[in-house]
């Protein structure tokens, strides 16, 4: 059994002994290890985003009896790397009539808020950046910055399609955040903790997984989370027929790439949270914990992609009605029953 968490701990201890030998204070060690951990997380996100772009194209192609990208490398595996290089090398266009500062900062806000979720995700035993005792609440709070970023993009672009796209996605995220939070509360009630590590350790055996103890909560969370990341069947913020491309209509090159990147970062994040909250996190037999975590996370991502290429898009009024008239009462019922019997 090869546990990456232990390897990281060994590296940290080795660096610590080097630092004490050279007489450098603890502060610099902490700073250095923070940078190293950040680099590792960024590398993980970049690799999985590149992989997911390719995977999504392959999954969609095979569901529609096509082949998808085939020309670059074996089954087109280099496609997303080449696309990324193309996007980075493109000219950085800032349209003349945009609100320049807001336009430039918006993709950064969206991406950083997606990135900050990873502080509290337990990738494996001892592989969490910081096990905050408000863990899941922190994740819920930090994702609200995405809404600010999307509204900035929509407003800063000075374009009616972008504005409508931004407004729609903000309205959607705010509406679905309510059932999402309520479905998380069921898990928190049973665990009696908000800490992500405690939630995972409460699900050591398969029959303890919250998907079996909180099936309704799981379904509500998954539905609301898909709506939060604006994916089909909840992707009206970027409904091509109505809104060109929604809030990122005016964006191109590197800035567009950042929105795209943030979208996949968010997808990995919500799947990792589903894995942690409902599928037992890193728990599993034989394999090391981090491999189990990756297997479960990528399985959830596959399911979400499956939804995307199976269901049609909802209409905007159906979408809001579904959140407020169906998901919200269901989440409340689930919470009350959990509180009564837990």
């Amino acid at each position: 059994m090869f546990e990456l968490g232990k390897a990281f701990e060994a590296i940290y201890n080795w660096l610590g002994s080097l630092f004490t030998r050279w007489g450098i204070p603890q502060f610099w060690l902490d700073l250095l290890s923070m940078f190293l951990v950040f680099a590792a997380v960024l590398a993980f996100i970049t690799l999985s985003a590149l992989f997911l772009v390719w995977w999504e194209r392959k999954v969609s192609a095979h569901m529609q009896v096509r082949l998808g990208p085939m020309r670059t490398g074996w089954h087109g595996w280099r496609q997303s790397i080449i696309d990324a290089i193309k996007l980075i090398m493109k000219e950085d266009i800032i349209p003349a009539k945009v609100d320049k500062a807001v336009f430039v900062i918006a993709p950064i806000v969206v991406f950083v808020s997606a990135l900050m979720v990873y502080v509290c995700i337990p990738f494996g035993k001892g592989m969490i950046i910081k096990d905050l005792n408000i863990g899941i609440l922190y994740i819920l709070a930090i994702t609200t910055f995405t809404v600010v970023g999307l509204l900035m993009a929509g407003w800063g672009s000075n374009n009616k399609y972008s504005l409508l796209g931004g407004l729609r996605s903000a309205a959607q995220i705010i509406s679905y955040e309510v059932p999402l939070t309520l479905s998380v509360l069921g898990v928190v009630l049973i665990t009696q903790s908000l800490s992500m590590v405690k939630i995972v350790t409460a699900q050591t055996h398969v029959w303890q997984w919250y998907i079996f103890r909180q099936p309704v909560g799981f379904l509500v969370y998954l539905t609301a989370a898909i709506a939060e990341v604006n994916r089909t069947p909840f992707d009206i913020p970027e409904a091509e027929q109505e809104l060109v491309a929604g809030y990122n209509t005016e964006y191109s090159g590197m800035k567009f790439a950042m929105f795209f990147f943030a979208e996949y970062t968010n997808l990995v994040a919500i799947s990792a949270v589903v894995t942690t909250l409902f599928l037992g996190g890193w728990n599993g037999p034989w394999l090391p914990s981090w491999i189990w975590f990756l297997i479960k996370t990528f399985f959830v991502i596959l399911v979400v992609m499956w939804f995307r290429w199976t269901y049609p898009r909802l209409r905007v009024d159906q979408l809001m009605g579904f959140a407020w008239k169906f998901l919200l009462p269901l989440a409340f019922l689930n919470l009350i029953l959990t509180a009564a019997f837990a």
Partner: peptide, 22 residues
């Protein structure tokens, strides 16, 4: 006071300011 901090972000940024922007 981490709990207060998270609630501050959740309510003031996530609800009140976004309502104002709307």
């Amino acid at each position: 006071a981490e709990f207060i901090a998270a609630v501050q972000v959740l309510i003031y940024v996530g609800a009140i300011t976004i309502l104002m922007i709307f």
